[in-house]
Design a protein around this nucleic acid. Structure first.
Lengths: 207, 207
DNA sequence: AGCGCTCTTGACTATTTGGTCAACAGGACT
DNA sequence: AGTCCTGTTGACCAAATAGTCAAGAGCGCT
C-alpha cells in the first residue's frame, strides 16, 4: 500500500486543504503550507507548478474523500427520504466538527475557493464545476427514487430539481461560514431540502 | 454639497470596492487600490488604519448605495408580488452589468468578503451581519403584506421566511459568481423566491 | 559498478507586501 | 502674524511573497 502518490505530496495536499479551509487561499502562503506539512519549498515546487495547482489538487482530494460517505448516504438500500435526512445530518455534523477543530464555522472549502479564485484561476472554477456535476448526480438519483415512490410528481424536472438542491445546500453552508453560525444549519437544513424539492413537509412522518 | 467625506477618501473606497468585487480581498493590494484611486499611500493610511478597515468602509458604501434602490423596489405602493419580481429583475440586471464591466460574474461583494475574511476580521463579519439584518427588514415587510393579501397563511413565521429568502438569494448570487453563469439567475430567481416563501407558483398570474 | 530516475534540500532572488514617518501645504480662526 | 487642523506626499522599512536552482540522496535496474 501507500499508493503511487508520495507521502510528501499527500502531506502538502492535506496541509493546504486544512489551512485554506480554515482561513482562505489569499491568507495562506506557500511557506505556511510547507511549514504545516513539514516539507521544504523545493519539494513543493517539485510536485506542484504553482500555489494554484496545489489548491486544485486540494479540491480534488476533498471531493474524493467524500465519495465513500456519499455512497453510503445515497445507498439505494435506504428509503429516499432517509437519504436526504442523512445528508442533512452529515453536512451539519461535518461542519460542527470543523468548527470545533478550527474555532469557527468553515463552510465548504471548494465553494470558498471557487468564490475567491474562480475568476482568476480558471482551473479552480473548472474543478468546482466538475464537483457540482458529480454531486448533482447523487441528487438526481435520489430524486428519481422519490418520483418512483410517488412522493414527487412524475412530471418533475429531475435535473433542475437536483441543481436547485445543490444551490440551496451551497448557499446555506456558505452563509453558515460567513455568519459563523451553524444553528440554522441544524434547525432548517432538512426542511429546506424538502421545501426546495417541493416535498410538502406534512407528507413526511417524523423521523 | 460635497459632504464631509473628502474626495480622496471617496475615491479610495470606490476603487477598493471595484477591485475587490472584481477579484478578491487577498488578490488586491493596498498599492493596487492607491494606484486605481490615484492616491498616495500616506493618504491611504491617513484615512484608514488598515486595509481591512477600508474593506469594511467599502462594504458600508456598497450597502448605502443600494438603499435608494431598495426603497423604490419595496415601495408599499406596489403590490407585494410585483416587489418580489422587481427585486429578482434588479439582482439579475446588476449582476449582468457587473459581468459586462468586469468580464465575469461578480456575485455579491459583501458576501465574498464575508466568506473570505469574516473569520479573520471580525469587523467584516459584523458588517455583513448588519447588512443581513438590514435587508431582511425589507423582506419581512413584503412578507407581511403577502400575508395581508392572503397569499401566505396567517400563521407564517415572517422572520424565518425573510431569513430563508435572504439565504436563498445569497446562495444563488454566490453560485453565479463561482460558476460564472448568470443564466440560472435570469431563469430561476423569481420562481426560486416564490418557492422559498411557499407561494405556490400556480397562484401567480403571469406578470 | 554505474546509470537513471524520483525526490529532497536549503540557499537564493526579485518583487511585493502592509504599514510608518517626518515634513509640508493650505485654509480657517485668533 | 501666528497657530491649528486636516489632508498630502514620497521616501522608507522590515517582513513576506511566489518561485528558482544546482546539488545531492536514495533507490531500482542492468
Amino acid at each position: 500500500m501507500g499508493g503511487q502518490i508520495p507521502e510528501t505530496k499527500r502531506r502538502l495536499i492535506a496541509a493546504a486543504l486544512e489551512l485554506i479551509w480554515r482561513s482562505s487561499y489569499g491568507s495562506v502562503s506557500v511557506d505556511d503550507i510547507c511549514k504545516a506539512a513539514d516539507v521544504r519549498k523545493g519539494s513543493f515546487y517539485h510536485f506542484f507548478p504553482s500555489k494554484a495547482d496545489l489548491a486544485v489538487a486540494a479540491m480534488d482530494h476533498a471531493d474524493k474523500e467524500l465519495r465513500a460517505t456519499y455512497d453510503r448516504i445515497f445507498s439505494p438500500a435506504s428509503p429516499p427520504l432517509q437519504r436526504l435526512e442523512e445528508l442533512a445530518a452529515f453536512i451539519y455534523d461535518s461542519q460542527k466538527q470543523a468548527a470545533e477543530k478550527y474555532g469557527h464555522a468553515c463552510g465548504c472549502p471548494c465553494a470558498s475557493l471557487g468564490s475567491e479564485m474562480g475568476a482568476q484561476e480558471p482551473e479552480i472554477r473548472a474543478k468546482f464545476d466538475e464537483q457540482r456535476r458529480h454531486k448533482t448526480r447523487y441528487y438526481q438519483n435520489v430524486i428519481r427514487d422519490l418520483v418512483a415512490e410517488g412522493l414527487l410528481p412524475a412530471a418533475s424536472d429531475v435535473k433542475a430539481k437536483a441543481d436547485e438542491m445543490f444551490t440551496y445546500l451551497m448557499g446555506r453552508v456558505m452563509l453558515a461560514r460567513i455568519e459563523n453560525d451553524l444553528e440554522p444549519l441544524r434547525r432548517d437544513l432538512k426542511d429546506g431540502i424538502f421545501r426546495t424539492l417541493g416535498l410538502s413537509v406534512e407528507t413526511i412522518p417524523a423521523a
